[in-house]
Design a protein around this nucleic acid. Structure first.
Lengths: 163, 163
DNA sequence: GTACGACCTCGAGTTCACTTGAAGTCAAGG
DNA sequence: CCTTGACTTCAAGTGAACTCGAGGTCGTAC
């Protein structure tokens, strides 16, 4: 019943942005509160978005897939030029950095898989000898956020001799 | 001052398990509350652990690195034989399944990297054409837990034709 | 026997990225 | 003008995997 398209061609309502981007209105408000996107307001205090917010949201979602936190994404977005609308080159410059990050993640994952392969035969799961349990890279980039596999004060883990 | 090693050779205190495994006592209590590990108690209600709890904890931590939730890990551990101490073969059997999971994660990550490579030139970040934003695999296994990149009701995202 | 560190429970707090709900306002078709 | 859906704010809730603190007990060396 109510028009679902603003035909002015200029500004988008939060509902339109949500439908076009696949991001819930609640998330859009959240992003705004976090300083990731911005909007104008009507006289009645409703949000109106410029069209290029869609590209910004795409950037955010892809960056999340790459593994960035919203905090990192905010810092990345802060490097966009102020005043003018970002160009294709601006966006490409930012996303170029992801490549190295993805390569690193891939490397860690491959290493984990290979360690696992060589360990499956032995089934040792030992704190002292097992590479699976004692990766030298420290942080594991998988699971819920990046958390450390081992505590820092694990002298016993390292120092313990066989027997 | 106080003995830091129980020389009975039989049971371990929570502090010893923590030191040897690199897992905090609070986490060990948490795992017990969650049914992932078990312990006996002294007459004074303190925990005493059998030595093979160390292997169980190693299993848990490695499984987390592979990307399993504690819930999945609990279900995996439930398949261990009851009564007898698990053998090396028991542990190997459980961890063999991780291989496929890691391969799948690697595949998704490689695909994301390749999509990114081919997109960096264009910098499009477009909701309609960009493979980065429209992966067919649906869930992204990165970042905080597994969440969906796109909402389910994103008809506009999919159905929108150019211009 | 006393000191002191290690241990106990239980409830609340943390982080991240949102979602949900309540209570109320705006905008546009009819 | 009225209805209805879309919008507003703000506070609180979610879930995963823990951590922290308070208030109290245990266990061992001296």
């Amino acid at each position: 019943m109510v028009a679902s398209v603003l035909v002015t061609g200029e500004l988008l309502t939060i509902g339109e942005v949500a439908r076009r981007s696949g991001v819930e209105p609640s998330a859009l408000r959240f992003y705004e509160a976090e300083g990731l996107v911005s909007s104008e307001r009507t006289s009645g205090n409703q949000r109106r978005y410029h069209r290029d917010v869609l590209r910004r949201i795409a950037f955010i979602r892809i960056a999340q897939r790459v593994g960035l936190s919203l905090d990192e994404i905010r810092r990345a977005l802060a490097e966009l030029p102020e005043g003018r609308t970002p160009t294709v080159a601006d966006w490409a410059r930012l996303s170029k950095r992801w490549r190295a990050r993805l390569d690193e993640q891939l490397h860690l994952l491959e290493q984990l898989r290979d360690d696992l392969s060589s360990c499956i035969g032995c089934g040792c799961l030992s704190f002292r000898a097992c590479r699976l349990y004692n990766p030298d890279d420290g942080a594991a980039a998988l699971g819920t956020g990046a958390r450390y596999l081992l505590g820092d004060s694990s002298a016993d883990v390292i120092g313990r001799r066989r027997r």
